[in-house]
Design a protein around this nucleic acid. Sequence first.
DNA 1: TTAGAAAATTGGTACGACCCAATTATCTGA
DNA 2: TCAGATAATTGGGTCGTACCAATTTTCTAA
Lengths: 242, 242
Amino acid sequence: MADLVYKNVMQDLKRRINDGQYPDKRLPDERSLSDAYQVSRSSVKRALNVMAQQGIIFKKRGSGTFVNPLYLKNKAVFSYEGRNLGLTDSMRVDGMKPGIKLLDFQVIPATPELQQDLFLTDDDFVYQIKRLRLLDEQPVMIETGFIPIKIMPELSSNVVSGSIFNYLEDIKHVSVTKSFMTVAAEPSTEQDQELLSLKPNEPVGVMSGIFFLDDGTPFEVSNMRVHYQYMKYNTFMDLDAD
Amino acid sequence: MADLVYKNVMQDLKRRINDGQYPDKRLPDERSLSDAYQVSRSSVKRALNVMAQQGIIFKKRGSGTFVNPLYLKNKAVFSYEGRNLGLTDSMRVDGMKPGIKLLDFQVIPATPELQQDLFLTDDDFVYQIKRLRLLDEQPVMIETGFIPIKIMPELSSNVVSGSIFNYLEDIKHVSVTKSFMTVAAEPSTEQDQELLSLKPNEPVGVMSGIFFLDDGTPFEVSNMRVHYQYMKYNTFMDLDAD
DNA sequence: TTAGAAAATTGGTACGACCCAATTATCTGA
DNA sequence: TCAGATAATTGGGTCGTACCAATTTTCTAA
């Protein structure tokens, strides 16, 4: 893959951790690793820093570097490695097959709120894309997305019936790696109940947020109303300022 | 505060950004900053990397470093600077006064699930702490927490009636900076409806997770059932591997 | 005038040196 | 024997250099 020194170190260390090569949960010290991999200690530190940020390891000055016990027990929760933020990917859980049913696809002028979030002006237009997401034919969420036409002038209903993020990666070679999300819960509306086969007392999870391209351009505003049984939003937070 | 070079640079850059000293959203290049602050370019890079991680700025190779427009428009969402992960702090929103009502406080043997999550054995015991959280006297969430007694043997019902995290910071000088959280939605139970004044069709948000001490020790398993109108979980994600 | 080449700009990666700070291990002397 | 002092270990921060890669600007030649 990438031919970066620190990534190679990371990759090998992860492999060793997964292989259980550190039964006492303790990694070799940085100077030894530097020597073993024949790279500078700076590069070792970088690799370890990223892994610590991801919650795989933790470091204690004067004491050593240790594997997070929970990483071994519950790897699924950690690390979005190699993935993007798209739902097509993150919902490929339990071997279920994702599906998309296009409900609506049109171009509308950007509302003031959209103008603010997507950094647009009065003259700008956006696609409005309303889709029903399925897992094994079961409807699980209603997704309404807004994308500026000036960012993707070539968007077609064909593309929109599949994964937009994968299209971006495969065809235009840009990836979506940043997002703001707000997660909330609400009683289901009649439309929710109809489309998601919900009983009146059953709620929906609401995930709304903004997705950004690599270069910081706000790319999409999205609002997702999720069947509560399928809604599980996992996060790992680390407030250490690096 | 901390007398670290890169933190000083960060602090000053944030101030300048907030003061609107970069009207074109463009920061000086790294070499100029290095020269201006009389610090090495390495330290400037470190400061900028942290700020990029926090979503305040974004960088484009060959082009420059720019302020994230959304940072200026919506600062509230960004940056937990100076805060910890405690709820007492993060719920001090809109000037409302937080309150805590202790519902239950006892010591129980660790269940197998707790043993797994908190890295305990059969012999270990945990505090079970059930509390009702209030905002301006209004009940907003039911919180059930489990903390190993061997981590905090001195825990009293007095401490538990306040902020445990603040107690840890002020008295024991350790802070809680890492957490795994899973956010979901559920129909309210009868107990939820009673304690949170919910109608039968109104749901709760469920936030459950594990909090860690600085050194990686799993410290608390927590399960929070939140009045849906008060449940808003914000996250900023950046999947760039450093 | 303008398209393409060349140069300058700007952030990215890597190295290695130097010292500091927290922790752990070892030694020393009563 | 063992408590306290001392040394060794281990991660943290900073500096400065060198070179690379993407982008933008400038120059050059048709």
